[in-house]
Design a protein around this nucleic acid. Sequence first.
DNA 1: GTCTATACCTCGATAGAC
DNA 2: GTCTATCGAGGTATAGAC
Lengths: 211, 211
Amino acid sequence: MSYPPGFRIERERTRPEKAGDVARSKAIQAAIELFSTSGYNKTSIAEVALRTGLSQSGLLHHFPNKTALLTAVLEQREKEDSEFLFGEGEPPLGWAAFDSLVALVARNSTRPEWIGLFVRISAEATEASHPANRWMLDHYSSVRAWLTRALEHGKENGEVIPDAPVDAIVRNTIAVLDGLQQQWVAEPHSMSMVAELRVYLHQLHTVWGTA
Amino acid sequence: MSYPPGFRIERERTRPEKAGDVARSKAIQAAIELFSTSGYNKTSIAEVALRTGLSQSGLLHHFPNKTALLTAVLEQREKEDSEFLFGEGEPPLGWAAFDSLVALVARNSTRPEWIGLFVRISAEATEASHPANRWMLDHYSSVRAWLTRALEHGKENGEVIPDAPVDAIVRNTIAVLDGLQQQWVAEPHSMSMVAELRVYLHQLHTVWGTA
DNA sequence: GTCTATACCTCGATAGAC
DNA sequence: GTCTATCGAGGTATAGAC
């Protein structure tokens, strides 16, 4: 394998990853699939390796240990979600923030692994010693901060009535999202998360919105 | 140790369990504590045995295997919850059903193990091969059936407006309950589940109730 | 960068003595 | 009813050859 002069530099400009990281990406994809159905604890790196087309040690050449694999998976999830939600610009505020959460759920409904991944990992990670514990706490904290800002902006805007109980609305909204995802993971064909969410948002608008 | 005549019979009349089942109860209690923090998969029967004051084999004399231990734990939970919710009588209907769910959460807030147990087990059990999978599906199905009946009763009663979207309200309510419990397990001192739930129920009354 | 081999755990369950 | 001993499976991680 010989490359024309400048090839490496060209590649590095379009794709920042090194060439050898193809296996890495495949491994992350395999890990997502397995974590999303069996959770982190129950998934063995041997099986991730198998699906990647590597031996166990081959896989561990790319990730020093199982935790590093999990970290890579979570980083990818965070990246894709926030790109979808915020893109390059500013996060939506007011009721628009809540609408974009519905859009995210709608999109993730077509990628069941992402829902399963979140449901399993975030439940496991409620244990303080779980490697994703800090990730989970940070994740919730940042979603809460965003939705809180969104509602306060809505109050300044006149979209939201002044005495709406911001904290409770934020926590309940996150709870509905998480809870629906869990029900959906248990029985995917029995319901439409988006339909249920629209009812919830309708309640929010009716009670706390300015008609 | 000698007992007066009739003692055994007296005991058997008041408590149906055999005398040897003290260890059994202790084991179930220990299992609840461990399952509630580490989940079922990650908990070893050896540690349950340790907390019970038995060797691993000693514990397995009372339960044929780990699954049987889980079953005993779930049966106890189901029993205590439904005794609290329904007692000897009929399940509450109409909005009263939702109020009694808040009462259950309020009571369980004082027994964190029960919240943790539910959060961990029900998330693990979304995997079809998990020993609690059927239990979880049945549990959700029966809660849905009860709340659905409650809302339909409320419509006949005039408590609930006729075109309230029953299925969505039921699923969203369960989602809020589950989601809040998960947030609470992650950071117990950061919130009051009952306070958030009251806001949610207020929305329900305002939007779907007959003023 | 990928492999085989292996060290070293932990776990669930069984056998059999007391 | 409780114990010790042990088996066998499956897991993470490391060493070292290619």
